[in-house]
């Protein structure tokens, strides 16, 4: 069922395509955008203007293509995304290998303009296109015993040069609690700015969980498994003290090596001021209920 969540940001807040393709033109057009924002009366939306296509596609963490922020933009073209299929297994009624087209069948793709907060204390606003993960899970039929959802990224060394290095234990893995996975904010994204998902952003299909640090939103998914036990997650396996299974955005719980109280919004240039990080990345009203009674400093 689509449309369970409506973003306070709308299509009007997204930079028009003719503008986002060229930063200089954006600068020229910023007056017009500001005008449109004022007429629409979206005061909040103005300081949450989505990042440009250039910013979103040139500053990525996708270690399968290298650990530099510009490595994915440089190397991700090597990844074959057609054909693509996802193996769905574990505690589901209809396990199997589903082609990309089969997965998209009957799904309503909507635009979701979400904040993205990286664990490294930078952030963006991204206009994703995708559908709710709950819709897919309902279609494959979640069995009664399932409590978690595990995800896996493509593991194809000949197309992913970063896999040669043991930065993490490959393949990249992530997981969610079932209620987190079924939450209407949680989507599988297949595009951004109305275009097919660029490879460096996790083509052809990736998870987006906007209230968690970015690394939870696993890219280029090839496997989804419903499990009873909490599944292993790559960063958590590598440094359990630094990266918890939950990894909800929380300005009050610091990463052991740096503060999470503030963040740097990408796109502000060399003299951008830091801004305060919001609890659950600004989605507290929607998701705080999932963690009622839990000590978020312990379950970080």
């Amino acid at each position: 069922m689509a449309g369970r969540y409506r973003s306070p940001l709308t299509r009007d807040d997204v930079t028009p395509k003719s503008l986002y393709l060229n930063r200089r033109q954006i600068m020229a057009g910023s007056g017009a955008l500001l005008g449109a924002g004022l007429i629409g009366g979206r005061a909040q939306a103005q300081d949450l203007q989505p990042n440009s296509w250039e910013e979103i596609t040139n500053y990525n963490n996708f270690y399968e293509f290298g650990t530099g922020k510009d490595d994915p933009a440089r190397n991700a073209h090597m990844m074959t995304t057609e054909p693509w299929s996802i193996q769905i297994d574990g505690l589901v009624d209809n396990p199997g290998t589903y082609s990309f087209a089969e997965i998209m069948e009957g799904m309503t793709v909507e635009e979701r303009i979400y904040r993205l907060r990286c664990v490294e204390a930078w952030s963006m606003v991204v206009p994703w296109n995708g559908f709710e993960l709950a819709d897919l899970l309902e279609r494959v039929g979640v069995q009664a015993g399932a409590r978690y959802v595990a995800f896996e990224t493509l593991n194809r060394p000949e197309e992913m040069p970063g896999l040669r290095f043991p930065v993490l234990e490959w393949p990249y893995r992530e997981g969610l609690r079932l209620d987190e996975a079924m939450h209407p904010l949680t989507i599988l994204a297949t595009g951004l700015y109305g275009e097919p998902m660029p490879n460096q952003n996790g083509a052809p299909i990736r998870l987006v969980v906007p209230w968690k640090y970015g690394f939870k939103s696993i890219k280029s998914i090839v496997r989804i498994t419903l499990t009873e036990e909490q599944p292993p997650a790559s960063w958590n396996m590598a440094q359990p003290r630094e990266y918890g299974f939950y990894s909800n955005v929380n300005p009050n719980v610091d990463h052991p090596r740096w503060s999470q109280a503030t963040e740097r919004r990408i796109g502000g240039g060399l003299f951008a001021t830091r801004q305060d990080t919001l609890m659950f990345n600004g989605y507290e009203d929607e998701v705080a209920g999932l963690y009622e009674g839990m000590d978020l400093a312990e379950f970080f």
């Binding site: 500053y59 510009d70 740097r264 060399l270 951008a272």
Partner: peptide, 15 residues
């Protein structure tokens, strides 16, 4: 520094 201030160091010039 000049590159950073004028967009020549990518989208995140501070880092």
């Amino acid at each position: 520094f000049y590159l950073g201030a004028t967009g020549g160091l990518g989208v995140e010039p501070i880092e």
